[in-house]
Nucleic acid binder design. Sequence first.
DNA 1: ATGAAAGCGCTAACAA
DNA 2: TTGTTAGCGCTTTCAT
Lengths: 341, 341
Amino acid sequence: MSVTMRDVAARAGVTPTVVSRVLHNKATAIRVSEATAERVRQAAKDMGYRVNVMARSLRERHTQMIGVLHGIGFARAQFDDGSRYFASLMDGIVNGAFEHGYSVTLCPKLLGQSPEDAMSDGRFDGLVWYSTFPSGENRRMLEQCSIPLVLIHTRASEFDNRFCSVVCDNDQGIGLGIDHLIGLGHRKVAFALDGRDEFGEVHERQAAFVGHLARHGIISSREDVINIGPNEAGLREYFARGCRHTAVVGPNEGVAGSFLRVAPDFGIRVPEDLSVVGFDSTAYCNEFRPRLTAISQPLVDMGRCALDLLIRNISGETLTSPQIVFPCGLDVRESTAYIAL
Amino acid sequence: MSVTMRDVAARAGVTPTVVSRVLHNKATAIRVSEATAERVRQAAKDMGYRVNVMARSLRERHTQMIGVLHGIGFARAQFDDGSRYFASLMDGIVNGAFEHGYSVTLCPKLLGQSPEDAMSDGRFDGLVWYSTFPSGENRRMLEQCSIPLVLIHTRASEFDNRFCSVVCDNDQGIGLGIDHLIGLGHRKVAFALDGRDEFGEVHERQAAFVGHLARHGIISSREDVINIGPNEAGLREYFARGCRHTAVVGPNEGVAGSFLRVAPDFGIRVPEDLSVVGFDSTAYCNEFRPRLTAISQPLVDMGRCALDLLIRNISGETLTSPQIVFPCGLDVRESTAYIAL
DNA sequence: ATGAAAGCGCTAACAA
DNA sequence: TTGTTAGCGCTTTCAT
């Protein structure tokens, strides 16, 4: 059994009240004589006293902890598995949290079973939820949330602006990619997806793809959308029937990477025969040969921003502009080139 | 204010005790009539009741949370910053924790200020401490730890086998690297370090380096240790004075990577003029040109193992073999080649 | 300047 | 089968 406040009080010859005041109540105006204070501090030190944060949290009704959740229907993101997407986001989140004196915790069973628990079981002062797909189930859950929450990669409007949200400018980002490709002479440009996430950001990016091509006078059709499918089967099928495009834009690094990986099997060279543009642009892009050109979003900054917003929320501030949109960039690497003449 | 057990009890016309039993006491033999139980469940659902985990934790004296700490003197590891070392380790730790129903939390101010708090403030049921350098300060802290703790990358013997520990076989790993190099014809092999961590694993790896060269009849001297220093200044100095070795082994990916990065500036080609071997072998190795050959340690498995050990510890088991040693492997990539004749 | 008492929300031993 | 009571360790009025 560990030493409690009562123990320290006993040894110092005072009551727990005094111990609490001396040890944790620095801000308050209530004074304790320096002699007593010193006696208490010494006793605490001698006995190796530590507050019990559970008791404190129960009493004070806050925990200095924030939780990180993700939407139903997604496997837990790995820190090290292909794209550094989650790793980057988390670096921003954790750094932000630490600076504000908050811990951040990752919870099990937050996909499917009962994420709603974490939202109101007193464990967290606030939550960061990142998900690209506000399904009915997700929506229902979030609506019940009783603590501050900020969304990453979901538009605030999806939830009637009830929560703050941090997103990147998908439209502008895709525009950057399309402009780059058009500038290289490409006219037959495809959009790829893997069919797993058709409603969230991927959808937005696909719409942007169509829009920006149109801006350049190119009308894209259903034929220009390649669903690589599970295990890249759809991609192989596409290649097998002859590559009908000179460039392709993927909505993330994984999908774009599939093209780099599979193309050689069909004698297609990147970027000579096919230019490939990905999205996110984490360090993962450098692992490909050729290195993957990609539209970047400032993931670390976005995580950080989400956290700042959350802290302000927790502090009782009501944010007026519930959505922060970060502009994208374009990192030209080696997977895009002038179209072969 | 959120709804409490008392509220639910009131609505269901029973006492909090009954609610507690119905909602959370499934395993116990105490019976509640099905009618009452149903009434309670309905009331809880109607009112959107959630346990308060702080109250529960305070009462039950466990939190289902484990903390991840690292030693004093190290900056917090980033998930996405060069080597995927920390990311991989964390994947193992988090996956393990989740499977056992534990959350994992990262705490601020755990380097320098007061890591000891996390060790006994009731916040965690157990701790994973990863650090390569058991300084006096770290040692003092760990000795005060009042909850189960497992070490990663620190030998159990450093703390009188008081804690379990998970390490990789540095000697065997370095042996693999040296054998590889010798097999390629190298005789003039250097060991590199960056002077920041001379006492922990790096030290062990350096000793192994000397030993394994000796096994091949090569006596290495102080001249064969290259301290690349801050900002690679030492490395540039080394190259400037003419590269005296045909191969170099680095104790991690960062140091080895420095050679790949700086060598071209001095007209030295890797691997034609200089073979480079790193340690850890995370995906980061693939970001280098040429890709970095490296000694691998199964980081994900090690993190996972640490967690399994920790959970067993928490469950009251006293582990008999306090140290698990994982064998290393060698991932030959592109930075090593036969010595030029 | 210090202490007494109440209570945060929950669970468990004991009683009925 | 259900209720009573006590208490986990802490902070906070409100006395003194």
